[in-house]
Design a protein around this nucleic acid. Structure first.
Lengths: 219, 219
DNA sequence: CGCGAAGTTGAGAGAGGTCAACTCCGGTGG
DNA sequence: CCACCGGAGTTGACCTCTCTCAACTTCGCG
């Protein structure tokens, strides 16, 4: 589980580098309010996106009306890739003032046709998307709620601070975490208090969190 | 849930098309025995792969020693993309005589630099990989075991036969299905019998399966 | 101050895991 | 040809973990 939490280690560094100047000339910046929709499920996939600040969540609605969060996108992360012409999931801004850069897909593809460096940027972004999804796929298995929550925290700390021991502020609510881990809010809350009591993490004011001891999951 | 089972609808058609002649000239074909390893976790990611016949599974081992199947790759599917230089998961052949075509990554990238069509092929393969992982991510949530199993069967029938109502032979064991859906074998087995009794599916000899009625999940 | 959203904690119920027994089937060897 | 074996699959009984429902606290904001 510790290994899986590390799957996303290299993303940030690689994807934070800016694209070429030509690429950025195609960009449009969107500034979103808390909860605002970047695109809806079913929208035509005419753009690729990248979070430049804040946090975005990719959501799917189940037929029973439950929300499932497929992934969180942090600054530097690309999203919106689709093999079909319609998006399978919606994407929303999680926190106030999240900024998202939008690139017109067709034009970017044309641009990439003659620009090997840009090609690789896109390819790497897609591969990193695969790695992120794969990591979640591993975490989401039949691990206990305690392990899921701990892995989630560890992953977030690392993606947000680029260190494993720093204290970070979780940008999302317990409800978001619950929908991401496929747990109920209550179970997320209980797991966090148990992790705090057992000394695995420290939790200052509900959002400020720090990894203390990876061994102490048992409590 | 029915919608999610359809996420993978377009893959097969798009990815079955052959790559360019130049691309195929770099290819090496591997013929694998049942259970044989294509690559191990931690192997350097120097190749990209594509299943040409049979079935492959991408596995991760949890720290507790449980196996988690991240995805099944059917003929036409690419796999082995990695944003890092080492593979995060192992890949094994599920059935005897599975053939896998292997492309040297660096050479293929160089080739793609001057070949926009090949670029798009690679890009689309990566995007389809994202779509597959995303679909699994949705299914794996807090749905009941019955729904997970039904979605899995529906997805497999569609990917294997390109129709929704055909009878197909499941190429993998109950254990594989269990590790893929994060359920125990017993629960998979029980769910299948319940689905059969309720009239949602027909199950002839344990492996031959057909979707009968999408509404009858309740039984 | 008061309101609603976020978060925590408790008690009871239901779904799935675990353990175990048993059947079915294909292969192997006497 | 048949006995034996092991893996795959099914079914049952029990137990644990998480969900649900509910009450309550805390926080942020008008």
């Amino acid at each position: 589980m510790l290994a899986t939490a590390r799957l996303s280690q290299d993303h940030a560094t690689a994807s934070r580098q800016l694209g070429s100047a030509a690429m950025e000339s195609l960009a449009t910046v969107m500034r979103c309010q808390r909860g605002e929709t970047v695109y809806e499920q079913g929208d035509r996939s005419e753009y690729w996106y990248r979070v430049t600040s804040g946090l975005a969540r990719k959501c799917a609605l189940t037929p029973e009306g439950r929300r499932r969060i497929i992934e969180f996108s942090l600054p530097g992360d690309f999203f919106g890739f689709s093999a079909r012409d319609a998006h399978a999931c919606a994407v929303e801004a999680v926190i106030e003032g999240t900024t998202v850069t939008r690139y017109p897909r067709r034009q970017l593809e044309l641009l990439a046709d003659g620009d090997p460096q840009l090609q690789r940027l896109i390819r790497d972004a897609a591969f990193q998307g695969i790695a992120r999804l794969q990591a979640r796929n591993v975490i989401l298995g039949p691990t206990t709620a305690l392990e899921k929550v701990f892995c989630f925290i560890a992953d977030m700390v690392e993606r947000l601070s680029h260190e494993t021991t720093a204290a970070v502020v979780l940008p999302m609510t317990r409800y978001d975490i619950a929908d991401y881990l496929s747990l109920s809010v209550e179970t997320v809350s209980r797991s966090l208090t148990r992790l705090r009591h057992s000394g695995a993490i420290s939790l200052l004011d509900g959002r400020r969190v720090r990894i203390l001891n990876e061994q102490r999951l048992s409590g």
